[in-house]
């Protein structure tokens, strides 16, 4: 892709694909939004940990093999053991800057609502910011790194799905 507007369009597409995958609980589709390089990563942590300089995360998939394992956790290991819930992601891009090698650093605000299937009552699961490194490839944009940093420091329940 040549122009910034093409890149911006590809970035919106991959962000939308990410949201659609999670909100439809389609974990292979979630995995497909990541670049296939070995060091592609998904990180979920809290602003509290970040501000204290504490490296611990809620989810830390720091290589492509672990992204695949995240799918296995949800589809094989945990299947049938938890009260399920549906998520609804609301994402707003707030900054986008070109980085090296046809990559972009993209910042977006997010809110994730959840609706447990048994209560049917919707609430906020977490809000925060995505700090993404996105590569533009011949077949579209992919996440090299997706890092979700939550303002929410005390989660209202367990987390099955990535945010």
């Amino acid at each position: 892709m040549s122009s910034d507007s093409d890149a911006q369009s590809a970035i919106v597409d991959v962000q939308n694909a990410y949201i659609e995958a999670l909100d439809n609980k389609d974990m292979p589709a979630w995995l497909a939004t990541f670049d296939e390089r070995d060091d592609a990563s998904y990180i979920l942590t809290t602003r509290d940990n970040e501000q204290q300089g504490l490296p611990l995360c809620l989810m830390l998939d720091d290589c492509h093999a672990r992204l695949k394992d995240r799918v296995t956790y949800i589809t094989k290991i945990w299947a049938g053991t938890f009260q399920d819930y549906r998520t609804r992601h609301v994402v707003q891009q707030v900054a986008c800057a070109a980085a090296a090698d046809n990559q972009y650093d993209v910042r977006s605000n997010f809110s994730v609502f959840y609706t447990p299937s048994d209560t049917g009552q919707s609430s906020l699961l977490a809000c925060g910011v995505y700090l993404d490194r996105i590569a533009i490839t011949p077949t579209g944009a992919r996440f090299v790194t997706k890092k979700a940093v939550t303002d929410t420091s005390v989660m209202p329940q367990y987390l099955v799905y990535p945010l």
Partner: peptide, 25 residues
Amino acid sequence: RIRQSSNLLGPCGLVSMEDASVFHR
């Protein structure tokens, strides 16, 4: 320890997420 601790126990850990769900039920 950072990698393992970020993925094993806790409210979304490999061998503990199910406990968290059971607490509610």
